[in-house]
Nucleic acid binder design. Sequence first.
DNA 1: ATGACGGTGTGGCACCGA
Length: 258
Amino acid sequence: MQIATWNINSLTVRLPQVLDWLAAHPVDALCLQELKLTDDKFPHAALEEAGYHAAVFGQKTYNGVAILSRFPLSEVVKNIPGFEDEQARVIAATLATPTGPLRLVNTYFVNGQEPGSEKFAYKLRWLQALHDWLRSELAAHPRLALLGDFNVAPEDRDSYDPEGLRGSIHHTPEERAHFQALLDLGLSDAFRLFEQADKSFSWWDYRMLGFQKNRGLRIDHILVSEALRGQVTACSVDRAPRKNKQPSDHAPVVATLG
DNA sequence: ATGACGGTGTGGCACCGA
């Protein structure tokens, strides 16, 4: 069983790459962020042909998230219950897997732009709301994974320039404290359950040859609940799609559950 | 301090991302 997350920065542009990647990596579920399209434009037919059900929460121009799954999906929730939000950033669903129900929470965390800004305040409010809701989600669904583009580099080793970027967006103590609060709910960072190469990142700036110079951040994550933790046998970033023509600026992250 | 690159919407650029 494999689950994955990938910010594809426009599904309109990247659908062929998503289909190619799924053909080469037939994961059981793929969480997509930054669809940048409305529900009516979602390519259900092409993905069904590839063998995937889809739960979709689209938005024009910005944001938009979807869960693709080889197993039937149920109990779909869009955005954080009780948290008023005009932006489509969260979709959760339960997968009917042969080994029992698996709850996936697919999230596109707020960027935050700059500490002190209104957008940063929104990010912190959103993070608090996500945390509070996840507590009840975990109670209701012990087998749960939180996947997505977190827009947080949890530790210094998750940044190409931790000193130069100290205190800047994705690196602030407030964002990192919120990430830790998610771990404190009983979630584990699947990537860090295993030995990894130094300077392992999941996002690289399009500008200034960011990927070629490996000037990146690890901001795309798969967090697993206590009930799942022991079943995770691998987790890695697939850098290959970042070498495509017209790539997303993010690479997929894949976790294998035994 | 700024812009660099890419997607979108829509208008001949501005805005946003990270």
